[in-house]
Simulated assay, not measured.
Amino acid sequence: MRPFPLRARHAAGALLGCAVIAPAAFAQDTAHGDLGVGVVSRPEYIGSNRQRTNLVPVLRVELPTSYAYLGNRYGGNPLQLGFTPLNTGKWIAGVSVSYQNIAPRKTSDGDYLHGLKDIDRSVLGGFLLGYRFRPGGLLSLRSDTDLSGHGQGTTITLAAQQAFPINDHFAIVTGPRIVWGNRQHNTTYFGVDTAKTPETMLPGYHAPAGFQEYSLNIGVRYATEGDWVIGGGISAGKLLANVKDSPVVKETSQVTASVYAGWHF
Rank of each mutant, 00 (worst) to 15 (best):
Ile172Gly: 02
Gln100Trp: 03
Leu147His: 09
Gly136Ser: 09
Gln161Cys: 00
Gly126Cys: 09
Val123Pro: 10
Lys106Tyr: 13
Gln152Leu: 07
Arg132His: 11
Asp144Ile: 03
Ser108Thr: 10
Leu113Asn: 04
Val173Met: 14
Ala103Tyr: 01
Thr157Lys: 02
Ser108Gln: 04
Gly149Gln: 06
Pro176Trp: 00
Ala103Trp: 00
Ser140Arg: 11
Thr174Asp: 05
Lys117Gly: 14
Thr154Phe: 07
Ser143Glu: 10
Ile102Cys: 09
Thr157Val: 14
Pro104Gly: 05
Pro176Cys: 00
Asn101Lys: 08
Asn101Ile: 09
Ala171Asp: 15
Asp109Lys: 12
Leu128Glu: 11
Pro104Tyr: 11
Arg142Gly: 09
His150Trp: 05
Gly137Lys: 01
Ile166Phe: 13
Leu116Gln: 05
His114Gln: 15
Pro165Val: 01
Val173Asn: 15
Thr154His: 05
Pro104Ser: 10
Arg142Glu: 14
Leu129Trp: 09
Asn167Tyr: 06
Thr157Glu: 14
Gln162His: 13
Asp118Gln: 05
Ile172Asp: 05
Gly149Asn: 07
Asp146Trp: 02
Asp118Leu: 01
Ala159Trp: 02
Arg105Pro: 03
Ile172Arg: 00
Leu116Ile: 04
Gly136Phe: 04
Asp120Gly: 07
Ser148Ile: 07
Tyr131Cys: 02
Leu129Asp: 06
